[in-house]
Amino acid sequence: MTDDSPATTDTESEPDEFDVDEHAREHDPEARVRALQSLLIEQELLSSDAVDDIIATYEHEIGPKNGARVVARAWTDPDYRDRLLAEGMSAAAEVADVDEDVVDIEVVANAPDEHHLVVCTLCSCYPWALLGLPPTWYKTPEYRSRAVKDPRGLLREEFGTDLSDDLEIRVHDSTSELRYMVLPQQPPETEGMTEDELVDHVTRDAMIGIDRLAGGQNG
């Protein structure tokens, strides 16, 4: 029997059409994530403690201190700085407990005439391994669009970072393969400090690029 029309009997012929919007209207997110976790554990795609382990890691272990340690090392060790700018993740793994195999991170260095700013315009991906969870503003539509269209205005008006006009701003849009982190310049007043002391002078905001730490600002 030939039949060139799509099957309309017994099972659904379409790939499983799932109306997420309706699902979301009907159920609260707590029940939805519980259901996911429960089914995935049943299918052995998830171990029962994997989720709690990851939450604990991101809440308590991974944070901007990883990135700060990397920056402090780069400020005190020129060879390390070169390696960091060439091979971000493997250099980061020398000083912080990070998994080199996850998404690559490219480190971009501020200079006297250049300032870097990190954004992810599509989905708010972030150098989690080095900076922990992203701040709320990083994920907003406004930050994601204005960082590209008007970075200077964004930095001045939203974050109080008024960069001088002769400073070139380079905006780095993260992709699924590559995340960015900024290596700020060392503030002159911290010259001569040890790596451990320097760590406390490196802020998350400077590693995203909404703050500059050293020079190049008006006023």
């Binding site: 997110p29 939805r32 994530v33 989720v51 709690d52 939450i55 809440e59 709320t136 939203e158």
Partner: peptide
């Protein structure tokens, strides 16, 4: 925007958000 800032080290606002992230 910066008023949307929480702490210097953000954590999750609700258990389900943490769970969705972690899964």
């Amino acid at each position: 925007l910066a008023a949307l800032e929480g702490e210097e080290t953000p954590t999750f606002d609700a258990p389900w958000q943490a769970r969705a992230f972690a899964i």
